[in-house]
Design a protein around this nucleic acid. Structure first.
Length: 371
DNA sequence: CTGTGTGTTGAA
DNA sequence: TCAACACACAGG
């Protein structure tokens, strides 16, 4: 049933956003040539099908499906409403809904994403400033993703989630580790490139509350002096004082904000404010590796990841936090008791934070994409 | 068996 | 591009 493949190619001529798969899929019955003689038309289907006898103009139980007053909304035999939008001669099914208005609203959302802010819609009107949260949200997702949300009726939730994160200082959404990238060449590709890694030194995780960024990497990826680089500006906010604030998202989708600056005294680039918290929460130890990545997409989102480097270990007493969708729902401070969560890392067990967010991020994007 | 959503067509 | 019609077939 759910086999729409939507390839996103914003403004790309060759690209095709196809829903009703071309031929290969399934060849159905040939066009039903209505016998000119026998004028019996079945209207609708399923329970509401009716027979019209146009011979004498009398109809047996006129039960045509009630057409909707909303654009992009079509009636369903069972009384529900379907939403659809067209693109490139093809219909993109947006799902079925109980309420006509709901279907209409879904169409509006799709229309916005597919045709821009000046799209003709049912309800949406203004949004003159292209900077509202929803617009940003739409831009940040591929058409396929938006359609998927509409069909699953999860759009509202996803939008709200993004808003929450936005306030948190960064507008990315949760993804499980190496998230799959939407094949479409439109939206935010969650593909990342590793910028550099560093095995933290004792002082990096010590009381100095700072992480030294190797100069070569710092100057290559985080050019501090000339803050003009557009790519960096997007993720860094000039700080009132020295340095800049930099936002990085970890594998849990949590956004970390650090102060990034240059210390003349030691002639080194460092992450200061915020770093100690990261060390603490991730239970970083000397020898562990922190990895800096960046989205290859237009958003240039920065990510920070870490991994335990094999080494001397013992079970560390640490608070075990169970998190669901970025919210701590269970917090037990134990000393590596059975209750604690231990994770195999480099052959050594170590208590770690555990996130269960993946549960809700299940996204089975059915994209049989062909590029 | 129930509905969904695709095949298809004709009108705008 | 769009909605109406018809119905194959996916999912329970």
């Amino acid at each position: 049933m759910d086999n729409s493949c939507i390839d996103d190619s914003t403004s790309n001529t060759s690209g095709s956003l196809s829903t009703s798969t071309p031929s290969a899929k399934k060849k159905l019955s040939p066009p039903p040539p209505p016998p000119a003689t026998m004028r019996l038309y079945r209207m609708g289907s399923g329970g509401s099908s009716v027979v019209l006898d146009s011979e004498n103009g009398v109809e047996t139980e006129s039960r045509k499906l009630p057409s909707s007053k909303f654009k992009g909304v079509v009636p369903q035999p069972n009384g529900r409403w379907g939403a659809q939008i067209y693109e490139k001669h093809q219909r993109v099914w947006l799902g079925t809904f109980n309420e006509e208005e709901e279907a209409a609203a879904s169409y509006d959302i799709a229309a916005r994403r597919f045709r821009g802010r000046d799209a003709v819609t049912n309800f949406k009107s203004p949004a003159i400033d292209g900077t509202d949260a929803e617009s940003a949200f739409l831009e940040a997702h591929s058409k396929a993703e938006i359609v998927d949300m509409l069909r699953k009726h999860t759009y509202a939730d996803e939008l709200q989630q993004s808003k929450r994160k936005f306030l948190d200082g960064n507008g990315k959404r949760c993804g499980s580790g190496t998230t799959t990238m939407s094949n479409g060449n439109d939206g935010v590709s969650r593909a990342r490139e590793v910028l550099f890694e560093k095995a933290v030194t004792p002082s990096d995780v010590g009381k100095l509350n700072r992480l030294v960024i190797p100069k070569q990497h710092a100057e290559k990826h985080f050019p501090l002096p000339a803050m003009t680089t557009a790519t960096v500006v997007a993720a860094m906010t000039p700080s009132p004082t020295k340095g800049v604030l930099i936002n990085l998202e970890d594998r849990m989708g949590k956004v970390w904000r650090f102060r990034y600056s240059y210390w003349n005294s030691s002639q080194s680039y460092v992450l200061t404010k915020g770093w100690s918290r990261f060390v603490k929460e991730k239970n970083l130890r000397a020898g562990d590796v922190v990895c800096f990545e960046r989205s290859t997409g237009p958003d240039r989102q920065l990510y920070i990841d870490w991994k335990v480097q094999s080494g001397t270990e013992e079970i560390t007493p640490v608070q075990s936090v169970v998190r669901l969708f970025g919210v701590n729902i269970f917090n037990a401070t134990t000393n590596a008791k059975p209750n604690d969560v231990a994770v195999e890392c480099g052959g050594k067990k170590r208590s770690r934070e555990v996130d269960l967010f993946a549960l809700g991020c299940s996204k089975k994007q059915t994209m049989i994409n062909a590029s």
